[in-house]
Design a binder for these strands. Structure first.
Length: 445
RNA sequence: CAGGGUGUAGCUCAGCAGGUAGAGUACCGCACUCGGAAUGCGGAAGUCGCGAGUUCGAGUCUCGCCACCCUGACCA
């Protein structure tokens, strides 16, 4: 992409409504535009990051055996009346009447609808386990939206729903999602820590929040330092191996970890003082087993091997991709702007042509641009005639992992300057070497 | 939802002894060809959130409404 033909509305000054870093930087980097309290448009740069995040989520859900569907944003109230939540949900639910005066709603979540889909088709235990997910916009009319996309009213959410014959099956399904989440957040460049979450009236221990550590986090968290060094399962992990899944989950749930709501001073005291880490965190995912809470009232049952009807045992697994973007920025930025992990960077590299119109600079810029494009890096070429300072500041702000600076000085000597956004390190090399280095993606950004 | 605050140019803000609106920046044009957001000159740009009221006259005072932000209780 050529910057001169792109749509990247950068803001030089901080919009006053934005308090926290991620909100400020997303506005300044031209990623989002607020349309109403808690409701945002995704501008091109934001959309690119969102797509990358969603693809990582999608790949890991698929790897773990979940199957993608897409349910609508607008739902009929009937299903919710059936589950009993139509009245319970309160003002957070955006209720709508259509032209026939039918009661509709903008979905805040999809348990009812997915249960309806399931019960309509699945009748046998042989079709289990089943895990269906979608990535769709949700609306919750929050009393107080804030922090930009971190706490919007309309937000994108990946929610998966598992269906199993019994608790053991549901637990295995839960474990698969648990491991998928570890991998997902790792791939987004985040250090996530699963923490026991409140299971409410359901009880049990099958509910975890995945928390990303960030100084600006919304909640206070307490955990063992060991989490910082734990290995995340590789891509070769076998999701069909229930024992292996259980063992990974076991490893990741043994050391102490809790948010302030679940914090237990007595348990915490058992962790040696030096091993304790108390910090702030951002919840980026939540997995939850809820058994027959919906399958029972809605009649989602299958015939078991015993020939009897069994209400399926369910769980739901959420990740907020829009919120995740905010969390990534909170966890990865400096005074000059965003520092994208390579996996979610909107463009793989910036090429800064210091002197558009100069035959030498134009030639080298185009050459590097073509080569990086061929290498699959998806570069952004700054071919505008802004002043140098403005160009550098803009590129630092949008935080692409690499900047290839093509200036008349270097071009005369047959070199370009490559800057690593994260480390700030700059080195001169030939254009070919630069393309090689970035194209191979062998430098950890 | 309770408490507090703010709405003036795209953005950040000034103007408040009531007299009909200003700066920086961004934008457009010309010159400048420039290595860290501050090159010069010129230009365009505002129903002063909306509606009433007081007044000869309201961005400025009064009342009502709306929007947005912050603090708290609640959530991916």
């Amino acid at each position: 992409m050529r910057l001169s033909r792109y749509f990247l509305p950068l803001l030089k000054e901080n919009p006053k409504e934005a308090e926290i870093v991620s909100h400020r930087l997303m506005l300044r980097a031209g990623m989002i535009r607020q349309q109403a309290a808690g409701i945002y448009s995704m501008l091109p740069l934001g959309k690119k990051v969102l797509d990358k995040v969603c693809n990582i989520i999608r790949e890991e859900q698929n790897r773990a055996g979940a199957i993608e569907v897409l349910m609508p944003t607008v739902q009929p109230a009937d299903l919710w009346i059936e589950s009993g939540r139509y009245n319970d949900y309160g003002k957070e639910m955006l209720r709508i009447r259509d032209r026939q005066d039918r009661a509709m709603l903008y979905g805040p979540t999809n348990e009812e609808m997915i249960t309806d889909i399931f019960r309509s088709y699945v009748k046998s235990y042989k079709d289990l386990p089943l895990n269906l997910y979608h990535i769709q916009w949700k609306f919750r009319d929050e009393v107080r939206p804030r922090f930009g996309v971190m706490r919007g009213r309309e937000f994108l959410m990946k929610d998966a729903y598992s269906f199993d014959l019994d608790f053991d099956g549901a637990k295995a399904a839960y474990n698969r999602m648990f491991v998928a989440y570890l991998r997902t957040f790792e791939r987004c460049g985040l250090k996530s820590i699963p923490m026991r979450a409140d299971t409410g009236p359901i009880g049990g221990d099958l509910s975890h929040e995945f928390i990303v550590l960030a100084e600006t986090g919304e909640s206070e968290v307490f955990c063992h330092r060991d989490y910082l060094e734990m290995d995340v399962p590789g891509a070769d992990v076998d999701f069909n191996d229930d024992a292996e899944m259980a063992s990974i989950v076991g490893k990741w749930t043994t050391p102490y970890a809790a948010t302030d709501e679940m914090h237990d001073e007595a348990e915490w005291a058992k962790t040696p003082e030096a091993e304790r880490l108390s910090a702030r965190g951002i919840e980026v995912g939540h997995i939850f087993h809820f058994g027959t809470k919906y399958s029972e009232p809605m009649g989602a049952a299958v015939t078991g091997p015993d020939g009897k009807q069994h209400n399926v045992s369910m769980g739901s697994y959420g990740i907020g991709p829009t919120r995740l973007i905010g969390a990534i920025i909170e966890a990865s930025h400096d005074d000059n702007g965003i520092i994208w992990p390579e996996s979610v960077a909107p463009f793989g590299a910036a090429i800064v042509n210091m002197k558009p119109g100069d035959a030498g600079c134009d030639g080298v810029s185009e050459q590097v641009y073509a080569a990086l494009t061929n290498a699959g890096v998806d570069p952004l070429l700054d071919d505008t005639d802004d002043r140098a300072g403005a160009k550098f500041a803009a590129m630092d702000l949008i935080g692409l992992p690499w900047q290839v600076v093509v200036g008349p000085r270097g071009v005369g000597n047959g070199v370009v300057e490559v800057k690593n956004r994260r480390t700030g390190e700059r080195q001169e090399m030939t254009p070919e070497a630069a393309v090689n280095m970035i194209g191979r993606g062998n430098l950890t950004a």
